[in-house]
Nucleic acid binder design. Sequence first.
DNA 1: ACGATCCCATAAACCGATTTAGTAAATCGG
DNA 2: CCGATTTACTAAATCGGTTTATGGGATCGT
Lengths: 344, 344
Amino acid sequence: MPGAWLGVPVRVTIADVASAAGVSKTAVSFAFNNPERLGQATLERVLGVAHDLGYTPHPAARALSMRRSGTIGVLIPQRLSTVFANPFVSELIQGLGEICEEHDLTLLLVPPLDGSLEGAIRQASVDGFISLGLGPHDRALEVLDAIGIPAVLVDSESAADHPVVNVDDQGGAEAAARHLIELGHRELAIIVLPPTRSQAANTPTAVRRLAGYRSAIESAGAAAPHTVTAGTSIAAGARAFESLPRGKQRPSGVLAMSDMAAIGVISAAQSAGLRIPEDLSVVGFDDIPAAAWTNPPLTTVHQPIVEKGRLAARLLIQSMKGKAVDSPAPLKTTLVIRNSTSTP
Amino acid sequence: MPGAWLGVPVRVTIADVASAAGVSKTAVSFAFNNPERLGQATLERVLGVAHDLGYTPHPAARALSMRRSGTIGVLIPQRLSTVFANPFVSELIQGLGEICEEHDLTLLLVPPLDGSLEGAIRQASVDGFISLGLGPHDRALEVLDAIGIPAVLVDSESAADHPVVNVDDQGGAEAAARHLIELGHRELAIIVLPPTRSQAANTPTAVRRLAGYRSAIESAGAAAPHTVTAGTSIAAGARAFESLPRGKQRPSGVLAMSDMAAIGVISAAQSAGLRIPEDLSVVGFDDIPAAAWTNPPLTTVHQPIVEKGRLAARLLIQSMKGKAVDSPAPLKTTLVIRNSTSTP
DNA sequence: ACGATCCCATAAACCGATTTAGTAAATCGG
DNA sequence: CCGATTTACTAAATCGGTTTATGGGATCGT
């Protein structure tokens, strides 16, 4: 049983290979990384021995000495179990993953550990970070550039000195609100995204979408909207519906900042005997794939999530190569009208 | 601008802190890891200096010398963009994440790089691996125990010398098939999961589910089912529907091995003018959250995905602590009857 | 006053790779 | 045949931490 002793496996190191092949560590290293610097015969012998011994370079050692780990970190502002309940994140990862795979990079998920995102950041051995939904004054940002690692911010505020990838949240929200208003709705409710982590403030995304809704509503002279905060889950959306005013006070249209919340509202409303869209119009945000086959299919603001991921990853990789990159223009959002909205 | 020189950031190392505080590297290390071994005064001074300089221990260096990285790897058998299109994976990650966060571990996604999962495994600096859907003879398994790192196999074959976490695939599949048969269906189609990566063989999961379907069908004396292979995506499911025999030959019931494929079938069937379930009954597998609010809601085999993730993570962590763990009994699957099935 | 204990702090070894600088032998030019 | 390259390989430094073994000084018991 090579490499094991009484069931305790012991890693084969470069030194083991070197001595077994009767060469120096340098030679072994060259065999893998600079084969042309070795003679034909030695090269083959070393590679042979390495293979027989099952040698694999220790990733941490390699990372230390090469100053790169081949990994990029994804900074997740909340617990994985809540964040991954939203298909939005899956889609973003699809985009990130596509580009990472092209560049032989793996993806490290970095959620707050022990309540602290900063701590988790330090622990992570990565060549760059992609952060999701960080507020402009988040402590995590300080840590990020204290360690001087490239970072790209997704869904953040443009203030920081890192490239920021955003979509046109405000424009999308305006289009959504205008859509309801044009259908004749005057009593609207807004379901706001929850603040992440301990920060009291709304996320940058929530702020921009809220501004979009409000601007459309105000310029139409409609009533000030009722607002509720709800997480991005079906259950949270359902709770939000429950907390809406009842009877004559009930808004005829709901503007949700996430499809998940919108779906929750719809499902709770249907359970309460309301017909969608006849009795209540609901418009979501994100256009996750599932939005197309809910019952009824969801009218929502489309944002190019996968493309957003790709773009962020590309920028980060540029940045990791030392190139200076600046924030691209916000990606377009478009209103997709399906069947969850109609005249009141 | 501390730590930077002409815009080139330079990491603050333990040696910098040591000399700035007028102590040895050891003292600095102790300040963070063994504070009780330092005098009150020195401790405070060192921590103060470290904070002022913005010192953060280099994760790779730490990992190298402590022989642990604080990360567990998730072996993904296909490209991230295809795997994360299936909500199944999101749910699994929720389960894994829950336990990992409890133990201050981060999660590294390891898909095949450059076509090779083995290569990606070597590159990954992790303390343990969780693999998804690996066949019993996959080369990746060899690499896995060549480097002697604990691993837990999810949705695999029980053969290997690693703990395996499975659900009762066969039982669930049997229940699904029996359900259709009891409704009176005699002409059935099965949509098989695709093989992962280059291996020609079906995944262990597919094999078990197929066995379940077949056993129920055969023992009922129904006709041999038509089988199609389709990926776990809506589009693939739709294509599978298109490839089904038409007219009188068309099966009256479809057994899909994934909810995503089932949803694709339903949606393609509806576009073709069929009513679900009146004209075609469809049963899925997995019971992803979306299955509850499709149109119509999906009859499917429920498996406890999040719990499966939790269990796998717990076992891996046990294993990482050096304890010997053996495979738990397969988790229960249950048929959830909604509205995508009825009498033919 | 003297050896035994503690308390603090450090020097040096170690983790496992890459890389720089350099050496001995073979090859080359003339 | 002699100096200049080239080829093939290696010793030692380096990456940035942790840990072991050790030493000096203060405190203690007697």
